[in-house]
């Protein structure tokens, strides 16, 4: 074997090993549903608080805060539950495994960020810093997606950059505008990327 052949062989091994650590079982239906729920959640938050409280978060009562946390925890639970169900269904359909060492690595690498997200939300609500919560959620979710893109590819990286930008803007915005940015991120961005995923899948042979 010539040195070029050997180098080529080693390169082939490296590329195959890299390709095998890509995660491709991402059902677009999960993103579409998250988009619908995210948009509805932002609209419900707007409706629950009303113009006066959105303009002055100091008027928010303990009941308002608990109501909002229950609403968004419910949305998170439904979106996560349905996404997991769709992942399992797609994996069965295509002969992939839904839970394997790669999925475990992805899940446990992002888990601390999710837990930190929950903890900081609690602290911000407790200290009355409600206007910062939408921005923090967008930032935290953007960071989770950024971590995931190393396994899943550019779609998650692009979504991540949009969420991080929206989050940064939301942190410097009044509560009313921050909730609109929440709708733009969790609603519109999810919907757009979910629909893009459907289009790409339908174009596959």
């Amino acid at each position: 074997m010539e040195p070029q052949e050997i180098a080529g062989e080693l390169q082939f091994i490296k590329q195959t090993m890299w390709a095998s650590t890509r995660y491709t079982n991402v059902p677009p239906g999960g993103a579409v549903l998250a988009g619908v729920l995210g948009g509805a959640g932002a609209a419900a938050s707007y409706w629950m608080l009303g113009a006066a409280k959105l303009a002055d978060p100091g008027l928010l009562s303990r009941g308002d805060r608990i109501g909002l946390l229950v609403l968004w925890a419910g949305i998170l639970a439904v979106a996560a539950g349905v996404s997991v169900a769709l992942i399992v269904r797609q994996a069965r359909k295509t002969g992939r495994s839904a839970w394997n060492p790669l999925v475990a690595r992805m899940f446990f690498s992002e888990l601390p960020l999710l837990l930190a997200g929950g903890l900081l939300t609690w602290v911000l609500a407790d200290r009355g810093l409600d206007a910062l919560i939408p921005g923090w959620w967008l930032l935290d979710y953007g960071l989770v997606l950024f971590g995931l893109h190393y396994y899943t590819g550019n779609d998650h990286r692009n979504q991540s950059l949009i969420f991080l930008t929206l989050g940064a803007v939301a942190l410097f915005s009044p509560l009313g505008r921050a909730v609109m940015l929440l709708a733009a991120g969790f609603g519109a961005v999810h919907l757009l990327f979910g629909l893009k995923g459907f289009l790409e899948q339908s174009g596959e042979p």
């Binding site: 062989e9 082939f12 091994i13 195959t16 090993m17 890299w18 390709a19 095998s20 650590t21 890509r22 491709t24 295509t94 002969g95 992939r96 495994s97 394997n100 060492p101 790669l102």
Partner: peptide
């Protein structure tokens, strides 16, 4: 052999893979 080398490379990286996953990778 090209396919067997690819198969072994993918399995060395992941430990285990389903038929569907391997078909997609290789």
């Amino acid at each position: 052999e090209r396919v067997r080398l690819a198969l072994m490379s993918a399995l060395a990286a992941r430990g285990s893979l389903t038929f569907g996953e391997l078909k997609e990778i290789l």
